[in-house]
Each structure stands twice: as C-alpha cells, then as structure tokens.
Design a protein around this nucleic acid. Structure first.
Lengths: 204, 204
DNA sequence: GCTTAGAACTTTACACCGTCAAGTTTGGCT
DNA sequence: AGCCAAACTTGACGGTGTAAAGTTCTAAGC
C-alpha cells in the first residue's frame, strides 16, 4: 500500500531528508545541498529532483521535520513540569530553548529567511501543531488579552532562543537560561483566569 | 591621507558594500555574492578579493553597516518619544521593529547564522554601540536585576521582530505592533529606580 | 506470461558561484 | 626617471542548482 518503496533505492525521500538534517546539524542551513544529500544517499546528483523538484522543496521537507521535533521537545518539557498552568507554560519555554540549543542550525533554517514553500501542506500542519502547543499553555492566562499573552510569551522565548543561537554572549548554558525564564515568569503578572469552564463540553 | 582612493576605481570598498546592501535588500542574505557586487561596481569578478579576501569578509562589512543603520533607527525613535524612561525604552523597541521591517533581509543576515567574522573590529564596534542603546534605555528599570530587565526587553523585541521578518502572520502592520508593545510595557512591572544620580556628573 | 507505460534514476550539459594563481596596469615614492 | 607595490584583470578549478535526454526497472493490463 503506502510502502513507498522506490524501484532501486527503497524509500529515497526519507533518506534524503535524514541526510539533510545531518548536513544542517553539522554545517548550518547553507550546508544543505541537493548534491550532498544525493551523495549521502548514494544516488546520482539529479536523483532528488523527482522527490524535490527544487532546493526550496527539500528545505521545506527538512523544516517540516524540524517542526515535528520542535513540538516533541516542548511536549516533553511540559510533561516533565509540575501540573500547574504556570509551570506548564514555563516548561514549554524550556522545551523551546532546549530545541534551539540542540538543533541550532535547524532552528535557524526554520525561522530564517531561506527560501522555502510556506504553503506546503505538510509544513503547515507541522508548524500549526507547534504553535498550538504554545497557544495551549498560554491559554489559561487570559488575564488581559489572550492573544497578547500568547504573543508576548512567544516573542520572549523566540527572541531569547534566536539570540542564543546567534552566538550572543550571556545566554551561557541552558541552566542559566531556564533560571532567567523562571525569574521572568514570576515577574510577569500572569493572572490566571478560571479555566473558563475546562471546555464547554463539545456536545457533539 | 585617509583618501582611500583606489588607483582605477576610486574607493571601491564602499561601492561594494553599497551594492551588497542593495542585493540583500532585494534578494535576502543568500543573494549577496562577490561576483554580483563586483558587477554592480563595474569591476572584474576578482576585484573584491583585495578588499574582502572572502565572502565572509564582505558579509562582515555589510553587517557592520547594518548595525550602524540599526542603531540610527533606534536613536531616531527614542528622540521622537516623550522624555520619560518608560517612553524612551518603548521608543527603542519601536526603532528596533521599524528597522526589521525596513530591512528584513539585512536583519536576517545580521542575526542569522551566515558565516562571518564575529571578531572583526569594525563589526564589534558597531554592534556594541547598538547594544549600548538598549542597555541605556533599560538602565532606569533596575527594579529587579538590571541584566534581567535588559535581557527581557531585548529578547522580547528581538523575538517579535524575528517572527515578523520570518513572515509569521499576525504581526500585520507596524501600527499594530507598536500598540502591542505599548500594552505590554504597561503590563510589565517596570519599577523605575531613582535615576541612581542622573549620572555621577563626569566632572570635567 | 508477455508486453508496455511510466516512474525512478543516471548521464550530460550549462550557467553561476567562491577562490586561487598568474598576469597587467597604474600611482606614488625614492 | 625608475622602480615597486597596490589595484585590478584574466583564466582556471571544483562545487552548486537545475534542465534535458537517456536508461533501467516495476507494476499493471491483457
């Protein structure tokens, strides 16, 4: 059925994306090249063209996989956190930062301006699911404008992560970063609204 | 003296940097190429080598000029703001955002991971001066930890700007963005310490 | 079971890129 | 005047994305 097996190679597409992730991890976004992923998968330099007509398409697939791992990092950090709204939001930030630290090149590829297909269905699905995690953990803090709180947390953690990846001094280690966010969350007036009826019961 | 005039061209270095800024403005960081800036300056493809041994050196010079304009944007916005500590800090953020919106490609080049010389003296001077602006406007808010306040404001505005440049929806127009920051600054508990003696009076 | 259509892949080719290695021109200093 | 070194040109090499054409194999239809 969905065996996806190629004639000669046997599921080349996934191999190319895997090789792409390795290249980006080792050499940053600009190290991602069609010819190199082809070489890594032991196929000719033009073989990827059938799966990814253009470099932008390959980037898109790598970025989509990046968002999946990104989401996994956040979910895992949330799961590790104490079960309070405050700690879960903080946990999402921790996961965000850990991902940026674990995959700096991929992080830059995902959020930089390297040309890719923003409308790609697979990418949109993956990035929407990532953003939904942030929206979910900031939902309890609808004290002021919920969109404001969401955007504030997102900007804060994304800015910090970007500066850290960009090699700015100060952000030192992950431990220091998490301590900073803990202090900052204590400082923000995250007024926690009653869970707004934990959900109006979808009724069907 | 410091005429810098070249034999044939007459100050090629500046022309190459200018052409580089135009390329980045039009086509993003990856559009910056040695051969294209050479063509734009009507010199051979190897002419830039004497001024910029490598693409990374050209990038470094373009980025340094970017920081100078970046700082100018912030200074101008601060000058336009009412003369209160709160409004000046907010003004710096406005300038930050206006720069990112005015030069999205340059912004990404400056803060992305494209290889360049982080130790370059000219670049370090320009970026230090930019960071000093943020440090200056956040200095009055030493309510908690001064470094924390500085880093929080920096992360917040940088994250928002990065997301906006990255094409994320929502950040719509500059007006909406500035309104968001105005609300957010009102929400933060920016406790303003006594100006710590408005400056110990440099004496002299 | 054979044939055949088309997908998957290879080969070849082209334009562009960064960079190196030589030449050539030119301006300024002795 | 003569020379030298800086500024620039020319040419070449390997690497890149991508288009076009050729080859091989799979799977479906009869």
């Amino acid at each position: 059925m969905s065996q996806k097996k190629s004639h000669h190679h046997g599921n080349l597409r996934a191999a190319l994306v895997d090789a792409g992730l390795a290249l980006v991890r080792d050499g940053g976004p600009d190290a991602l090249s069609i010819r190199k992923v082809a070489a890594a998968a032991n196929v000719s330099h033009a073989a990827p063209a059938h799966h990814f007509p253009t470099l932008a398409h390959l980037r898109t697939a790598v970025i989509a996989e990046g968002y999946r791992r990104f989401r996994a990092f956040m979910e895992e950090a949330i799961a590790q956190a104490p079960d309070t709204a405050h700690d879960r939001a903080l946990g999402a930030c921790f996961g965000y930062l850990r991902f940026a630290r674990a995959y700096p090149g991929l992080f830059d590829l995902m959020f930089g301006t390297h040309a890719h297909d923003h409308e790609d269905a697979e990418l949109c699905a993956a990035s929407d699911e990532s953003y939904a995690v942030l929206a979910r953990v900031s939902a309890p803090f609808a004290g002021n404008d919920p969109a404001d709180t969401e955007l504030a947390i997102w900007s804060l953690v994304h800015g910090f992560a970007s500066l850290a990846v960009g090699g700015q001094k100060m952000l030192a280690d992950q431990e220091t970063a998490e301590a900073f966010f803990t202090r900052l969350f204590a400082r923000l007036d995250l007024v926690e609204t009653a869970p707004a009826t934990p959900r109006p019961a979808p009724e069907i």
